[in-house]
């Protein structure tokens, strides 16, 4: 089948300078274990952490104790801007910049402006959804410490990762590692910045 071979498991753990550690990363081979680990980490008081999965998993952000509706807000604002710009453009063209008598109809024949206004609303909303999502996610991001785990390339195919970050106030290299190892991971690795 595939000519692709996953990298070997890391057997020996290198010693890390705590100042260089981005976080501790646990690898799971199924999403149920990951979900349980996330919920346990949240209940244990960890806050600055993220999970990495090859599929969108519903409820995973709840398990991480995290929620966000920034994309919805951005799209709503963009829709209003798109609508105003579209209708404003039609208004300015027909009333100010180029008034023209078409079959004796009023210059401000607003029902005819609805289709273009609708299209500009959709266009700006779609821009908001796509670029808003990317911006809030901090993408494009050419570098991220999680990629320093050589096994992380499996996160886009069939492995599930939980990374508790060093910035978390409760983070402690030894204790957090002990906590993660109790969650039945395949492996726990410290990733460097």
């Amino acid at each position: 089948m595939s000519t692709y071979a996953p990298p070997q498991e890391q057997t020996a753990q290198a010693q890390h300078d705590p100042a260089d550690v981005y976080g501790l990363m646990a690898e799971f081979d199924n999403q149920e274990d990951l979900m349980k680990a996330c919920a346990n980490a949240r209940d244990a008081g960890y806050k600055t952490m993220d999970a990495y999965t090859p599929v969108p998993i519903h409820g995973l952000t709840d398990a991480l104790g995290w929620d966000d509706n920034s994309v919805q807000r951005i799209v709503f604002c963009c829709a209003l801007v798109g609508m105003s710009l579209g209708f404003g453009l039609m208004y300015m063209i027909t009333m100010v910049w180029y008034p023209m008598n078409v079959g004796g109809r009023p210059n401000f024949s607003w029902p005819a402006f609805v289709p273009p206004t609708f299209e500009t609303t959709i266009l700006l909303s779609a821009f908001g959804a796509v670029f808003g999502m990317l911006a809030m996610n901090g993408l494009p991001s050419p570098y991220h410490p999680v990629f320093n785990n050589p096994r992380f390339i499996m996160a886009s195919s069939d492995r599930f990762f939980l990374c508790i970050e060093a910035e978390d106030p409760k983070f402690d290299l030894a204790n957090t590692r002990k906590f993660l190892e109790a969650q039945h991971p395949a492996e726990v690795v410290a990733v460097e910045n």
Partner: peptide, 21 residues
């Protein structure tokens, strides 16, 4: 791929954006 790493938080916004689109 823009540095996509499958973060749960990214997926959350991603799914919202897909649904809105």
């Amino acid at each position: 791929a823009l540095g996509w790493r499958g973060s749960a938080k990214h997926w959350h916004r991603y799914e919202t954006a897909s649904l809105l689109l």
